[in-house]
């Protein structure tokens, strides 16, 4: 599904190398977690995969089901099935949440050659999915993320993910800013989307999210590379001992 090979990325403005040869394959139906200390390049990886400006790929490739992601515009990547749940979801005053969702859903359907969802069908679907995430009617009406609490913003990201039904879900520190109950709610939302055709890349600092979203593979990223990969037990090791031991071992 997602194949990243020898990916080298630098920040355009600062001419600073962030990713220094990332190799990673996420298979359909699997959940891969990436952990790592601050500044290791985790968020950069998520932005580069989703097509944010300001990064220059200096070497390597990233493909989704064989399609070259790096050649595509952000909206083309979305249509191809990439979804990034933002660490800091963006507030957009003046754009209603519902309008935004409908525009996004229909834009992707159009890009894939499908008919637009009727207003009634859309409403039915969004209401059901919002209910599962405890998102009330008021939140759907309000401008996108404006005045939302940290937990509401993250639930809103998962709602978008549920509506857009992407193939490859990238969650960038979705647990940050969440209390225990909100984390559970968000995790349930994510778990509901797990199926054979869908891959997940879960970026997190903490093992506790992985108690709720059980990963198949855990990677440790440091200084722009994946330095170690293993099973769920690797996350527990980090939780108990921190990164120092692993980094010392690798070096």
């Amino acid at each position: 599904m997602l194949d990243i090979k020898n990916l080298h990325v630098k920040l355009e403005e600062e001419d600073k190398q962030i990713l220094k040869g990332v190799d990673l394959t996420v298979e359909a139906g699997k959940v891969h977690a990436i952990m790592g200390p601050n500044g290791s390049g985790k968020s950069t990886l998520s932005y580069v995969l989703s097509g944010r400006d300001g990064y220059e790929v200096t070497d390597g490739t990233a493909t989704l089901n064989g399609e070259d992601l790096l050649e595509m515009e952000p909206e083309e990547r979305a249509a191809a099935g990439v979804f990034l749940a933002f660490q800091y979801p963006v507030e957009i005053p003046g754009v209603g949440n519902m309008t935004f969702l409908r525009t996004a859903v229909n834009a992707q359907r159009k890009a894939r050659g499908q008919d637009e969802l009727s207003a009634a069908d859309f409403l039915k679907e969004v209401r059901a999915k919002a209910k599962a995430l405890k998102i009330d009617a008021d939140m759907l009406k309000r401008p996108v993320n404006v005045g939302f609490s940290g937990g509401e913003k993250k639930r809103n990201e998962i709602l978008q993910m549920a509506m857009l039904e992407p193939k490859m879900c990238i969650l960038d520190e979705t647990d940050s800013g969440l209390d225990v109950d909100a984390m559970k709610l968000v995790s349930e939302g994510v778990n509901a989307l797990r199926d054979e055709g869908r891959g997940f890349l879960v970026i997190t600092h903490y093992q506790r999210l992985l108690d709720h979203i059980k990963p198949d593979v855990v990677h440790i990223m440091a200084d722009g590379r994946i330095v170690k990969s293993g099973g769920p037990e690797l996350a527990l090791e980090v939780e108990h001992n921190g990164y120092a031991d692993i980094l010392a071992e690798v070096n």
Binding site: P74, V95, A104, A111
Partner: peptide, 22 residues
């Protein structure tokens, strides 16, 4: 905001129009 909208599949033009109206 433009990137956020585009990352959800909305074209540059449509996203620009949405933000302009907003």
């Amino acid at each position: 905001a433009l990137f956020y909208l585009r990352s959800r599949g909305v074209s540059v033009r449509e996203a620009t129009n949405m933000l302009t109206l907003a």
